[in-house]
């Protein structure tokens, strides 16, 4: 690893710690810096409401943003590598559409058929949503993996994935048409994405799952490096293409499925972070890129969460708007500046 790369990596890790702290400090209820510090180290007597805000709201939210950002970014990098397409991202194979479809079934049908609006069910409703999302996305993923073993070209697979996404969206459209307004609203809000929905025990489970899955995705580093060369060269260097494709897509799919289940379909991060990292680190080597997207993804998600919760917005700003509004100009400017440098060389 180049010297400057190590420095960048350390800087980003340091930034993550700062961002976590900022996430604890900043919010619609203002809690003095010192009190936050005391609450974290469990010293001093701070008001119980403040303790609850930090422990039960801000910390879970920060951790959720952290692992969700990391997971989506890794998933995006894997998709871009396996399809050798810079526009690929976690949502490209219809996996997040699958999650949306699962959620749509639960939210929209429970009202129309069961006669209960899911939004009134509270905690049970939340769990039902997560399960529906996981089932929806994993079933789409299973379909994609099955197809990936049947078709040869990556482009064909990509197109089929996009088609599956369209079908899922069409099903959602039909469901919406037959649903009551209240449920549609609940569904739309889920679709805007949020790091705040996950609370308490659910957050523990989410973070636990991701801390197992993310390291697993690192086992595919050599495979992904070989994939950069294209199918024929990779095969000639001893890579079993079918198996490799299966593993990488599964890894990316599961990460996306779980994040989407807990946070809703978060757009943009998964597509943008890999590009940002390639620009910063000037490499395609996954031994550097994988940790890089993990850290940068986590940091970016924390920033977005911070902005979404800025005093004044009262937590009302949807994460998806922030990721795109903040992230797009940043990434575009980085890529633009890099392209200019390349031309000047």
């Amino acid at each position: 690893m180049r010297h400057s790369n190590t420095l960048w990596m350390l800087a980003i890790i340091a930034a993550i710690f700062v961002l976590i702290f900022l996430n604890l400090v900043l919010g619609s209820v203002s809690i003095p810096l010192q009190s936050v510090w005391h609450i974290i180290w469990n010293s001093g007597d701070e008001p119980i409401t403040w303790q609850n805000i930090i422990w039960k709201s801000r910390l879970p939210q920060a951790l959720t943003a952290l692992v969700a950002g990391a997971g989506l970014s890794i998933s995006g990098l894997q998709m871009q590598t396996v399809f050798r397409n810079p526009l690929a991202g976690p949502s490209v194979l219809g996996i997040s559409s699958g999650a949306s479809m699962g959620v749509a079934f639960v939210v929209l049908l429970s009202g129309s058929l069961g006669g209960v609006a899911l939004s009134k069910l509270g905690f049970m409703g939340e769990i039902a949503l997560s399960i529906a999302a996981v089932i929806g996305s994993l079933s789409v993923m299973a379909l994609i993996v099955y197809v990936s073993q049947k078709v040869k070209g990556n482009v064909t697979l990509l197109i089929i994935g996009v088609m599956i996404g369209y079908v899922a969206n069409a099903v959602i459209g039909v469901l919406k048409f037959f649903s009551v307004e209240e449920d549609i609203r609940a569904y739309v809000i889920w679709g805007l994405g949020s790091f705040a929905r996950v609370s308490g025990n659910q957050m523990m489970l989410f973070v636990f799952l991701m801390t197992i899955l993310i390291p697993l995705s690192f086992l595919l580093i050599k495979t992904m490096n070989l994939m950069l060369l294209g199918d024929s060269y990779a095969r000639n260097l001893g890579l079993n293409i079918k198996q490799a494709r299966l593993l990488v897509i599964t890894s990316a799919g599961v990460l996306t499925a779980i994040v989407t289940a807990y946070c809703g379909p978060i757009i943009f991060l998964g597509l943008a972070v890999p590009h940002l990292c390639r620009a910063i680190f000037q490499t395609s080597d996954h031994r550097i890129l994988m940790p890089a997207v993990l850290f940068v993804g986590a940091a970016l998600a924390l920033i977005c969460n911070l902005i979404a919760r800025m005093p004044g917005f009262e937590g009302a700003l949807p994460v998806n708007s922030v990721t795109a509004l903040v992230g797009a100009p940043v990434v575009a400017s980085v890529l633009f500046r890099k392209r200019k440098n390349e031309l000047n060389e």
């Binding site: 050798r84 580093i221 050599k222 490096n225 070989l226 950069l228 060369l229 294209g230 060269y233 260097l237 001893g238 890579l239 390639r278 000037q282 490499t283 395609s284 080597d285 031994r287």
Partner: peptide, 27 residues
């Protein structure tokens, strides 16, 4: 066919030729 590889140095690409001999992480 031209292989569309960006952000990889010549030395790194030639190094990929060693893949069959390198270990799990490709070092």
């Amino acid at each position: 066919d031209k292989c569309e590889i960006r952000n990889m140095s010549v030395r790194e690409l030639v190094g990929m030729g060693r893949s069959p001999y390198t270990g799990f992480w490709g070092k």
